[in-house]
Write a protein that binds this DNA or RNA. Structure first.
Length: 291
DNA sequence: CGTTACACCTGAGGGC
DNA sequence: TGCCCTCAGGTGTAAC
């Protein structure tokens, strides 16, 4: 679910409840592929540590710890970070369909989908990592160790150039949208912002990558950056699951032009928005505006 | 090497 | 109400 803007909003909002606080205890659910590092290792090695920095590259978050280790987090499709006690009616309706009083329900508490919970020495609110589908990831990297997942990542989408996209595009026959989703080329673009960026750049998502010009690559990368910066400003896109760590919905879903608007009017020309399937993902576009 | 098909999970929503 | 199907902001892998 979360793409670069949602991950960046999460980073900014979770920063104050993580950085500078000493971890006292760690709670997890049972081992699963969600845990690239086994729960018992996390419990043992995170206790006593203090987060120094929280950085983002593409859709990955990295918690830099005081002993040089790094806690790597990926939110997958349904991952959410929250401080305990966060007020969020939307979160709680997903959390449990209960008959408790609304005020009790309005404060987030761990449930069966809360796979990682950090308790801090200052006695303040815990940090929760909740993920219903468990496509998210938790990995503890020892100081100086590398991880292939991170090493393979291309340039962050906010710093990417049209030249970089063009270089990767010239030898590929896949649709340009599929290339935008390849995190080894540009990191951070997902299904929403690929569709939105291609719409603004007026390039059809199905176009073969090798048939996209350098000028168009520049327009695409520029459009993706502008869309994502605007999305960050509005708190990201809350379309199905995403809720900001603050408990509020984002705002960008109201500004999107084509994503999940099949059959609706193109905001530029009024033609019906189309949906096609590319590489098992939906792509949305205007067949009149995008060539 | 590039490309595709599928697997990993859970829950919501629509049709019947 | 229940069943069965499809769909979902992602990514890693095996196989062609």
């Amino acid at each position: 679910m979360p793409e670069l803007p949602e991950v960046e909003v999460t980073r900014r909002e979770i920063l104050p409840v993580l950085v500078g606080r000493r971890i006292a205890r760690v709670h997890t659910t049972r081992p699963s592929y969600f845990f690239l590092t086994p729960p018992r290792t996390l419990i043992k090695r995170l206790a006593g540590r203090t987060a120094r920095e929280l950085v983002r590259h593409g859709k990955y978050l990295q918690v830099l710890l005081d002993n040089g280790n790094t806690l790597v987090l990926h939110l997958g499709m349904t991952g959410q970070l929250f401080a305990a006690g966060t007020k969020s009616p939307r979160l709680l309706s997903a959390n449990q369909r209960g008959t408790l009083d609304p005020d009790a329900l309005a404060a987030f508490k761990p449930d069966k989908h809360t796979h990682l919970r950090l308790e801090f020495a200052d006695g303040g609110p815990d940090l929760m990592f909740r993920d219903t589908r468990k496509f998210g990831k938790v990995l503890l990297l020892a100081r100086g160790k590398k991880d292939a997942r991170l090493e393979k990542l291309g340039v962050d989408a906010l710093n990417a150039t049209g030249e970089e996209l063009f270089e990767a595009a010239r030898s590929r026959r896949i649709p340009i949208k599929s290339l935008l989703l390849n995190q080894e080329v540009i990191a951070g673009i997902g299904n929403i912002y690929a569709d939105e960026g291609l719409f603004l750049a007026q390039v059809r998502p199905t176009r073969a990558a090798s048939r996209v010009s350098l000028e168009q690559c520049r327009a695409i990368v520029d459009a993706c950056r502008r869309v994502m910066l605007r999305s960050i400003e509005t708190g990201g896109s809350s379309i199905s699951d995403y809720v900001r760590p603050s408990g509020q919905d984002g705002g960008y879903q109201d500004e999107r032009k084509v994503y999940a608007r099949e059959g609706g009017p193109c905001p530029v020309c009024g033609a019906r928005i189309k949906r096609v399937v590319l590489g098992a993902r939906s792509a949305h576009y205007c067949s009149r505006c995008q060539k």
